[in-house]
Write a protein that binds this DNA or RNA. Structure first.
Lengths: 337, 337
DNA sequence: CTGAAAGCGCTTACAG
DNA sequence: CTGAAAGCGCTTACAG
């Protein structure tokens, strides 16, 4: 019932090789033959079988994207950008939620022979060695947020969180804030929270007296959604130290944190300024709207695919650094305390 | 370099058929042989090739989920539920954003021979006939929100929006509201917005004087994110009719709508009560927190896979109706006007 | 410009 | 309990 190459060839009165040549547009088939074949294809509603094709070409035209958290619209937008770039090049994309064991995913990538994968999950969810495994088996990788991978072996696209945090701190400092907290969501000892490293640098550089006492770590297993922001804000308040501004690891956490502050009677931004990092569109609609360091998510996703494509096509392993943009809205204000 | 069945067989001193039997746990291989084979597998770091396997078994062990909008955490949670259920049965899942042309996706499903697909996108984004195409080619389908498909041919899982809207209306009515608006996001003439149909029924049944004048349609190409809620709320206000409560097509729209109302000086819930439908976790953190008709998203996703699995395994096509739960928070209050 | 044939890495009756 | 062999639907040198 399902039409195959053979059926088409038979109907068109040619060989299967010719059908292949027509379908793959090799351009070396007579016009007339092309026509006959296309007629047959249409008549049989024939669809090529990618599985079979993969067997002989050794390419699946499938790529994957591993997300830190699919429920965070930040990653959703990145996935969309990645996917539309991939589709333009005829790749099919597998979006992986990151909810389940990532190591299992990686095994699946091998077993299903994906051509390439964009990994934007943090390595506390998987073993970094798995990445090299993939590379050795010919699966191209682009990574993001995995500071410790070898940039010569694996292409990377990184948001410049060091600079972003610097800019955020300077912005708040410029507004008169001297007691600036940072809710990490991750941990101060995890090497890949660049924001945290930058925060500590800036605390020193600006000579803020708070030291690290306003740095709130996340709890294992780390997550960075609203709940974590909410909890971290409560932990910050329970510490009893003075703070007039708070930067959060990402926007979602900032929204959760605002909730906590409000519940404790703080006005935002009058009593406390709150900033996020990411630039999800939700922030604009929040009350008050969220000041943030914004990533152009769609562009980041597209760029990630470009890096992957370059690697798949010409074995080019490159590194791209993305700059975040200070987006001032209503959740921050001059310090009046 | 990449180890194949043949390599394993050679190293273990058996035939490739035996290797297959071991790996597929057919249980008819001598303990000793099993051991030898497993040793060889380990020594070579051999991984079975699913592509090749698919060629002979005629199953890919891949299923897809087509989402209406990946940036809406409602669908993200559903995807997570679906995926974890699928993984438990050793299926790999393709999440499709729905951002690009859905019809192209469907062609891909055929070409890549997915075993099944859960389609939770609304049909203004694709041709319903495509669904039947898939079924005819042996790809099992579970659909949601596609009211017009033939339930005998395609399994379905539907949220009971008729009842949910009824409950929402009765709740607001019970609080004294008589001028209740509905921001659809879709259109009053689209058959698959059950909420809309139910709204109209209830307006009659409760003998509300507003008639349809408070029903706000979406604009083509329909979308249901915050922006649409924001725009629809502004359109509602520009109409100049009195309203004291607003139900929105989904939570995201409700959040956008709140923003618009507030910008126009309305207090929520004092001046206007706002309700959503979906139950995304964001609603809890919003200020004020959102009253909604909640879906257990994770459960819905899991259930959808179960339906799909039943269809794949035993050709059982079934229908499941999911009930939403009234979740009262701070965005609604007694009518005082 | 076109066709015959080998090969991609598996599985699965079937024989032994 | 194990192996030889056909087959899944393509592609791709190679010969003609």
């Amino acid at each position: 019932m399902k039409a195959t190459r053979t059926d088409v060839a038979k109907l068109a009165g040619v060989s299967t090789a010719t059908v292949s040549n027509v379908l793959n547009q090799s351009g070396k088939v007579k016009e007339e033959t092309v026509h006959k074949v296309m007629e047959a294809v249409k008549a049989l509603d024939y669809r090529p079988d990618m599985i079979a094709r993969s067997m002989s070409t050794n390419r699946t035209m499938q790529v994957g994207i591993v997300l830190e958290d699919i429920s965070n619209p930040f990653f959703g937008e990145i996935a969309r950008g990645f996917e539309s770039a991939a589709n333009e090049k005829n790749y099919f994309v597998n979006i992986c939620t990151g909810f389940n064991k990532l190591d299992d995913y990686f095994d699946n990538f091998i077993t299903r022979r994906l051509d390439g994968v964009f990994v934007t999950a943090l390595p506390y969810k998987f073993k970094v060695n798995k990445l090299y495994d993939l590379v050795e088996r010919g699966i191209k990788i682009v990574t993001s947020g995995n500071v410790e991978v070898d940039y010569r072996r694996i292409a990377s696209i990184e948001n410049d969180y060091i600079f972003a945090m610097k800019e955020a701190m300077e912005y708040l400092y410029g507004m008169g804030h001297r007691d600036i907290a940072y809710l990490s969501g991750l941990g101060r000892n995890l090497p890949y929270d660049l924001r945290c490293i930058s925060y500590k640098n800036m605390v020193n550089k600006l000579e803020l007296s708070c030291r690290d006492s306003l740095l709130i770590d996340g709890k294992y297993p780390y997550a960075t959604s609203m709940t974590e922001g909410y909890d971290a804000a409560n932990r910050l308040m329970s510490l009893g130290h003075k703070f007039t501004a708070v930067i959060c690891g990402n926007d979602l956490m900032a929204l959760g944190a605002m909730k906590a502050f409000r519940e404790s009677g703080f006005l935002i931004p009058e009593d406390v300024s709150v900033m996020g990092i990411d630039g999800i569109s939700f922030g604009k609609y929040w009350e008050p709207s969220l000041t943030t360091m914004a990533v152009d998510q769609n562009r980041l996703g597209r760029k990630a695919f470009e890096l992957l494509y370059a690697d798949m096509m010409e074995d080019t392993i490159s590194y791209y650094r993305n700059t975040l943009e200070l987006t001032i809205r209503k959740s921050t204000a001059k310090c009046c305390r």
